[in-house]
Amino acid sequence: MRKRILIDRLVSDLSPVKPIRNWIGLWIPFTVVFVWLATQNFMWLRSDLATVFWTGTFQFEMALFLAMTLLATASVFKSYRPGLFSKWQIWFLIPYAVWMGELIYQSMGIISTGGWAAMSVNEYWNCAGLIVFAAALPLAYLVYLTQDGRSTNPKVTGMATFVAAFGAGNLGNLFHCDWMHPTHVVLEHFIPMVLFAVAGYIYGKTQLRW
């Protein structure tokens, strides 16, 4: 009885729908262009970019943030449809762990050489704000592109959405901030990124449930 009533009601409510598309090819170019323009025009490129660009540390960190952003983006566009979730979609958290390991390694080196005294709050205190500035529009665009999605893992999707946008912002900030002291990086780069991921988790839990 209930089956018939339910199915009749759902069938009578049927209207043609267009399957949602995967807009990853739209979001990535937009983000790359926007973050680059924001970095170049509003955050300024670091003065030592030409010399530091080909160093191992810079290349490593660039690859790390790029991997974080791309993995998170792929995760968003995979997990916002039901039935496509798989374990690799939380791999965007791995770069976090690698980054933390790198920061610990750098801190150990500075501690062994007694370099902590060199740390001071300098003009780059607002790196977290700059990351938010560079990531805000890509985040809004990503939320807009995925608004019709129905994730069956909303917390992961929410977290990946925020990590994708703020990872891109952090990548832009890498071309801006030349203050590489681990304390600064932890306070102004790493902890904000962790907080953005937590914010994404809460966003997914509260906004993406359906």
Partner: peptide, 24 residues
């Protein structure tokens, strides 16, 4: 069943339907 109805636009043609439906 309501969930299936509301999210029918998220099914990608050509992909396994039952995997999609059971995940919902």
């Amino acid at each position: 069943m309501e969930g299936i109805h509301q999210s029918r636009h998220t099914y990608k043609p050509g992909k396994p339907f039952l995997a999609w439906a059971y995940s919902i």
